[in-house]
Every structure is written in C-alpha cells, then in structure tokens.
Design a protein around this nucleic acid. Structure first.
Lengths: 161, 161
DNA sequence: ACAATAATATCAGAGTTCTGACAATGAGCA
DNA sequence: TGCTCATTGTCAGAACTCTGATATTATTGT
C-alpha cells in the first residue's frame, strides 16, 4: 500500500464527518441506510423500494402505478419496474380496472401480505435506530430538513418526477 | 381517475411530510437532491457519483480505485464501474503503478479538470440551497444525524462496504 | 361527433449500486 | 522456498433510477 493511502482521513473526520458537504453526506446516509435495510430484509427477499411500494399498496389499495409514482416522487417508469418485479415474485396481482381500459387495479397476494408483515417488523426496528441519540426537537429539525431537501426547487424540471 | 385518487394526501402532509418515517424521508430526500444535481449538471454530462469521484481524485491523486471505494463507503465493484465510465468519457486516465503490478495510478485528463471546474460551480450553488432556512445549530444537528444514519451498525455485515 | 390534449402504461437504453465469483499481485509465515 | 492470506481489480447478473419514445385510453373543446 502506498504511503499516501496511510494518510486516509479517519472514520468521522474531514469531508466525511460533520464538516462535509450536506449533499455528499446525504448520499452516503441514504446508501448506508438502504444497505442496512436490505441486509435486514435479506430473508424476505425484498428491497427497500419494494417494501415501500408494498406498504403504500397495503395502505391505499385503490392507487394505480402512476398514483404510486406521484406519491413516492418517482417517475412512472421507475414505479413500473418495481411493480413488475413484485408481480414476478407473485407478491402483487394486477387486474384490468372496471370502468377503465388502461388503468389497472393492483392487489397484494396472500404471499405479499405475509411477507409485508415480517418485513415491517424488521424495518421498524431500524427506523427506531435512526432516531436514537437525538431529542424530539432534533428529530423534528431533521425531518423538516429532509422534506425540504427532497422538494426544493422542484418546479423547474421538465419531467417533474 | 377514480374517486379514491382524489383523496391523495397533499404535498407536505401525512407520511410524506415531517411526520413520515425517517427512512422513507431519507430515501426521498436523496433521490430528489440527486435529481436536482444531475439536472443542473446536464450540460457537463456528469452524474452525481462521477462528480464525487472526480472531486476525490482531484484532491487525492494518489488513491487507487479501492481507496476511493473505502472513502466513499461504496463497494470496489461500484467504484470500478464509475471509473470505467469516467475513463470511457476520457475524463480520467489510468497508468500502471510503479512498484506495483496490480494497482493502477489514476489521473484527471485536461478535459476532466475543465469539466470539474464547471461542475463545482453548479453543485456548490445547490449545496448552499440545501442549508437555506436552517440555522448553524440546526445544520450541525442535521450533519450529525446524516453521519450517524450512514454509519450505524456498520460492523455486522459480511461484505462491509 | 371529431380532433386535440392529457393520463396511463410500457419498451429501450444508460448509470449506479449491490451480491457473488474469480484472477492476479503482494506480504507474511512455516 | 513455498503456502497461505489479504489486497486489488474485474466479470456477471440483478434491481433501481433516470431520460426519451411510443401506444392506448380518457377527457375536453369546438
């Protein structure tokens, strides 16, 4: 290993610690958390987006793929991909929509419901971990910031996902 | 559109506002910010990870692909992919490492340096936007939280990226 | 009723990220 | 010396995410 590699900034220091750029920290935090979620969900075979989609479908069974995309701030194409994978895994089913030729009604299968129950337990444990060490007030600050970071100047893009 | 779709929770309400799950908010914030960065970087053709890699290489020209992966908390495979794309775009160059058969020395090309200068201006403007509306103290809370969210319980995984 | 516009869904292609597997090099030990 | 192990780099395959394009259906305007 070259001499330079020995001088790698340490774990929580420099640009990687609390002095780093917010955008860089945001990407790393999301990557790290997704990784933990999917490691924890390994036994269920679900990914983080699949879990989110199943949860939304369970809460709002009336919604179409396009609806879900809007809710999750994703493009319709992305949501379509996620739903295709869920359908291939037989966790959801899609029927033609009555009174609608193009829209499709989406339903969780029994397997989907069972997996979701197990997955919720696993993910909620991690969710609690995310808040550990931060006061109620600090958590509120973080939530406000995350919402703002996800939505800031979202109106100038052409393909506004 | 079905009646149910009319009752979609509004923009900043319910699970999508400050009352939502932290993990869900984190994913959306990172998605939204990445989207803004790449829209802004459109003219340069860079993606957010490519920008991050170029910035790191410019700051630490001695580092190998494996070094960069460790710094950025990514797997070696991921960093390898990003560097391949940068190399195909002729923004970096890789030479065999002296005193080392396997390691490779990575350098920005002139084109790479020029693109990086333009990209930095664009991204730093967004970085400032990320902090807007939050006090110094609040920003520190957010940074601390992001660092913790990215690193929490990172030691139990087998493939520790 | 017919044409124009909007909404829904999907295909194609690219980049990022992971897991899993593998080859080649370097370092340490019996 | 030779064996073992860690490091470095890559290939293959999958999922997610985007942009761009296209087909089908619904709504709206004249």
């Amino acid at each position: 290993m070259s001499k330079a590699a020995k001088v790698l900034p340490g774990e929580g220091t420099g640009k990687r610690g609390p002095d780093g750029y917010l955008g860089y920290l945001l990407r790393q935090a999301a990557n790290g958390y997704r990784h933990r979620v999917e490691t924890s969900l390994r036994e269920t075979g679900l990914t983080q987006p699949q879990f989110a989609a199943l949860t939304m479908l369970d809460a709002y069974p009336e919604h179409s793929s396009a609806d879900l995309a809007r809710i999750a701030l994703l493009t319709p194409q992305t949501m379509s991909t996620i739903l295709q994978n869920l359908e291939n895994a037989a966790l959801i089913r899609r029927h033609p929509h009555q009174e609608h030729g193009r829209k499709r009604r989406i339903e969780l299968t029994d397997a989907g419901r069972q997996v979701l129950v197990r997955a919720k337990r696993l993910v909620y444990a991690l969710e609690i971990e995310l808040a550990e060490g931060f006061s109620e007030e600090e958590q509120l600050t973080v939530r406000r910031w995350l919402v703002a970071a996800g939505r800031r100047s979202f109106e100038e893009g052409a393909n506004k996902p």
